[in-house]
Design a protein around this nucleic acid. Structure first.
Length: 270
DNA sequence: CTACGAACCTGCCTGC
DNA sequence: TGCAGGCAGGTTCGTA
């Protein structure tokens, strides 16, 4: 479920429900996530004001005076605002309640997500080495071009490497490369500055459009199981291997790169 | 330093 | 209907 647009959608969904509120309790039903949930996490935040629900890359940062809870949704995680008194479902591993009765539930079947504590989250090993945000001014064509010089690695792998730019997951790497007309296996170091300018624009546009779509279904999303029905229609290549290219009608090709499904048009992408 | 595969998990879909 | 196999939106880690 979570690529950057959905993490941002989640952040926007929960922020108005929890910012400025006092944590009543953090209940950990299953601490076996990507890394064990620290046993002292509840005592660190109970009674404290959640100042801000922030985001860095695909990490949600629940900021408190003394530090922040670093939350990652992994492959299958979701964070929902619970408005009724429903009982926890299967895989509802963590529950964050506030003194006004607001309830956040973290559900993660595959348990690839994490809940960690850091007094200085920006310096945390998971965040310290991350590349720029794709929607920031720092991320631009010249940056990508410079960063990729001498790199033999396929451009798709290069884009999905968090050291270079964060938040470009498998779906959006496929989509942006198609829109930019760049073949996913092309060596990152052998792409011109002009084409990186185009690629950068398409990465931004694709992510921004998806965030906007997420926004339109915000209320549903927070209460949903995270199924991205609203993405499907705007996807040009992802999930369309074997179907005709929307631009030239040639059959889209599907290959595997780094164990991830990669779809491209053999005519439009070079 | 780079590059690639394995690993962490459960659920769901396909095909026999 | 059952079961094995493959695949899934992420990321780290070990090995070459």
């Amino acid at each position: 479920m979570p690529e950057l647009p959905e993490v941002e959608t989640t952040r926007r969904g929960i922020a108005p429900h929890c910012e400025g509120k006092i944590v009543a309790a953090l209940t950990v039903r299953d601490a076996r996530l990507r890394w064990p949930v620290p046993a002292d996490l509840p005592q660190r935040i109970e009674g404290q004001v959640l100042l801000e629900a922030d985001r860095r890359a695909k990490y949600l940062l629940l900021r408190f005076t003394a530090g922040a809870v670093i939350v990652h949704l992994g492959m299958s995680g979701s964070l929902r605002v619970i408005t009724d008194q429903s009982a926890p479902l299967k895989h509802d591993h963590i529950e964050l309640s506030f003194t006004d009765g607001t309830l956040l539930r973290f559900n993660d079947p595959r348990r690839f997500g994490c809940w960690l504590w850091s007094e200085q989250p920006e310096q945390h090993p998971l965040l310290a080495a991350l590349g720029p945000e794709p929607l920031s001014a720092e991320f631009n064509g010249p940056y990508l071009w410079r960063k990729s010089r001498g790199r033999q690695t396929p451009v798709k792998s290069f884009l999905m490497d968090n050291h270079n730019v964060v938040g470009v997951g498998n779906i959006y790497a496929n989509e942006a490369l198609f829109k930019a007309g760049i073949h996913p296996t092309r060596a990152a170091g052998r792409i011109s500055a002009a084409r990186y300018n185009q690629l950068c624009i398409h990465i931004r546009e694709t992510l921004s459009a998806a965030i906007l779509l997420g926004g339109t279904t915000l209320r549903d999303f927070v209460n949903s199981d995270g199924k991205p029905g609203y993405f499907a229609q705007s996807l040009l290549v992802y999930g369309r291997g074997g179907l005709p290219c929307t631009s030239c009608t040639r059959v889209l090709r599907e290959i595997r790169m780094n164990q991830r499904t990669t779809v491209y048009c053999p005519v439009c992408q070079r």
